[in-house]
């Protein structure tokens, strides 16, 4: 079956029910991708967020998936509208690496860890359980979600591409 790649860039939200589509967030560093999949309706959704929380009065008029706290509700809304059912959704989380570990860069720069904790908090608060995750560490990741099968893969430069499953969940902060 031909794979039709839909790139999910920073700040984007993509939802698809086309079985040939693959949602891909390339080169996540401190960014996180929140992925949702309804295996019955075969609907998939992904956001690619750069920052944990939006500041008040930040000058942005619209809600955007650039921020985890705005992106997660937007993702839930969109995937439900596309035919998914809330109680069937499988939720996955990837990214949030610490890219800068040199001395002289303070911990406040650890946006990756804050992205992960914000996503975990919001998902938990809205009643979602994360089925599997590949988060933290010091390496960038490419995340793929195959709409037809619900398969999720995570690729790093060191370890190549692996399929994300509850048994292979990885979280290191």
């Amino acid at each position: 079956m031909p794979d039709n790649v839909l790139s999910v860039s920073i700040g984007e939200l993509v939802v698809s029910n086309n079985q040939d589509d693959v949602l891909v967030a390339y080169g996540l560093g401190s960014c996180v991708a929140v992925c949702m999949y309804d295996p019955t309706a075969k609907v998939a959704g992904m956001i690619h967020s750069l920052l944990p929380k939006s500041a008040k009065n930040n000058g942005f008029e619209k809600q955007t998936a650039k921020f985890v706290d705005q992106g997660v509700p937007l993702l839930v809304d969109s995937i439900l509208k596309a035919g998914a059912q809330r109680q069937r959704l499988n939720v996955y989380l990837a990214g949030g690496a610490q890219m800068l570990s040199a001395p002289g860069f303070s911990n406040s720069l650890n946006i990756g860890a804050r992205n992960i904790s914000t996503a975990e908090e919001i998902l938990r608060a809205t009643g979602f359980r994360i089925l599997a995750q590949s988060t933290g560490g010091n390496s960038g990741r490419t995340v793929k979600l195959f709409v037809g099968s619900g398969k999720i893969t995570v690729k790093t430069l060191g370890q190549g591409e692996v399929t994300l499953s509850p048994e292979l969940s990885f979280s290191k902060v």
Partner: peptide, 26 residues
């Protein structure tokens, strides 16, 4: 500041420079 060397995917490296700016500008 002192320099930090990153060896990784281009996108991941660019997260570092985008994050401080993206809070206030697209």
């Amino acid at each position: 500041s002192p320099p930090a060397v990153m060896v990784d995917m281009l996108g991941a490296i660019f997260n570092v420079i985008s994050a401080p700016i993206a809070a206030v500008s697209d």
